[in-house]
Design a binder for these strands. Structure first.
Ligand code: SF4
Ligand code: SF4
Lengths: 133, 133
DNA sequence: ATAAACAAGATCGTATTTATCCTGTTTATA
DNA sequence: TATAAACAGGATAAATACGATCTTGTTTAT
């Protein structure tokens, strides 16, 4: 039960962009080198982050990435779920019909609570708080 | 980011044994059929649960599984970590040396907090509370 | 026109997960 | 004590997920 590499890379990428500042253009190559992320792989991850509206990708010579939101409004939860999907822990939490026991299963609720508590921890962490020393 | 099948099966198995009662012998075949777990796979999972001390496996004709602890003292966290290993979410939480940024990385602490909160939710759920209607 | 830089789909290798097979051992009981 | 029920445990296989890269194409500054 662990975060994927892609999730960790996404966080690092957004950390770099947050430190550079909102709206500042940084080339993919720089982000990849500084944050030690395989550049092509970063390309894939960036597309998801861009689709989620957190960054903009600028094509062409002198292209790169640009943070589109304020670090104060960007949470760890949002970034992570943008790349690894919604955190649900157990199938039955998201799709109760996946298990015929779900109507009277008490484990169900524990998963939901654990998931909520977990997600709340990640939601409280903004990139503004993560980049200030 | 989801629990594995094995983890879910382990929970179901212990749920059944808890309902049967501490010390009561139930055959593997019955548990597998009632809880809809592939019987051979359950065999593997049971070995881990037995190694953790939660159940005893009785060989021979009329053999089976037997709950060795009181459902009040058995938590969801213990059962799950017995089969899927300790929950740590991100490598650097368990092994800070896996990332040279860890000394001054603030994301680090968020992961640790989220993990603690998550594990605490699972620790609070005992099988006694899960099996009483 | 050229070269820098990103897009996007295909692909590949590896690790993990899930499940089963097979041979052997244990044990109740007939 | 022979037999069959029942679990052990190693090997193996299939499916899936993950991490990463390749290739071709498009965009854009100069
Ligand atoms: S048994 Fe309960 S926890 Fe497990 S999948 Fe079904 S509803 Fe969910
Ligand atoms: S950058 Fe921070 S959160 Fe990511 S692996 Fe390194 S120490 Fe952990």
């Amino acid at each position: 039960m662990r975060l994927s590499r892609a999730g960790e890379y996404a966080v690092r990428c957004m950390l770099y962009l947050s430190m550079a500042g909102k709206g500042v253009l940084v080339s993919r190559k720089i982000v990849a080198r500084e944050m030690e992320i395989p550049e092509q792989f970063l390309g894939k991850i960036a597309q998801q982050l861009a689709r989620a509206g957190f960054m903009e990708i600028v094509q062409g010579a002198k292209g790169g990435f640009r943070l589109m939101v304020s670090p104060e409004n960007l949470t760890l939860l949002a970034v992570i779920e943008a790349v690894i999907g919604e955190i649900f822990l157990n199938d039955c939490v998201l799709r109760p019909e996946s298990c015929h026991r779900s109507p009277d299963c008490k484990v169900h609720r524990v998963w939901a609570d654990a998931r909520d508590c977990f997600r709340e921890s990640l939601r409280k962490a903004t990139f503004a708080s993560l980049t200030t020393s």
